[in-house]
Amino acid sequence: MVANLLIYGLVNSVVLMLTALGFSLTFGLSGVANFAHGGLYLLAGFLAWIFINSFGLPAALGMILAVIVVGILGALIYRFILMPVRGIVLSEVISTFAVGVAILEFFRWKGFVTYDFSLPVLVQGSVKISGVSIDYQRLLIIAIGLALALLLWFFTHHTRIGLALRGMSQDEYTALSVGIESDWAGMLSLALGAGLAGVAAVVILPLGIISINMGYDVLLIALAVTVLGGLESTTGLVVGSFFVGYAMVITSTYLGPQWGEVVYLGAIVLVLAVKPSGLFGKSKELEERV
């Protein structure tokens, strides 16, 4: 039972991390809370399904294309929806939320409510680890999730573009004074965040079937994990995901699955009450001390 808990706790944690990665990255790099995240996640899933089943593309190609299209859409959302309201936080939240809901409800309106929307797993079969059976797709999720987290940390801390984006998020006027264009940074961060939502969708959705309400759940999970870890912190995201992921699995095992879902919502309330900037957040830390 302990081995099972450790392995499936790890899977659950990485699924949460992958789900929230795009949301956290966009906020960390541009300060935009992209509430269209759930809509973009689901859009990537449905697009991949359409590319594979309607256009007959190979599964991997269909999935890559879906990620690219959703990434481009992220940039367009910034250009046409967010740019005019940039800096007005409430308007940013309302407009991105409206876009996300419009995407989800568009698919509902078009009849994507049946039970036949599923993506193929990239690797079939399963393996036993310490006596616990686990399928290759879940192992792939762990590998991709951890690799992406590392890659993003490297990108934001050790590349010129990543450093420029972080500079912009820390102080827009200072960044502008050294030649970093804020709208370019915003577009890039939205594109990257949307693309990451797409990656999460095409690796996680093959575990089950695609249903529209998942889009709303994804947004909630992304919010919970990033608020817990600290909105702009990659380390916080990883720690937050593992904290919530393992807490959910332990609670589900010993108290019952109905309590597992309460954990991440309870975590938001608790962290906001005790440390509003999150476990590793810096943005409001000074205000909190004052």
Partner: peptide, 20 residues
């Protein structure tokens, strides 16, 4: 006996207990 909230998508804890 385990009840799952609507929207839950990981059933590993119950399946592991059923197996054990």
């Amino acid at each position: 006996q385990d009840s799952y909230p609507t929207g839950a998508s990981d059933f590993s804890s119950s399946l592991a207990k059923a197996k054990a």
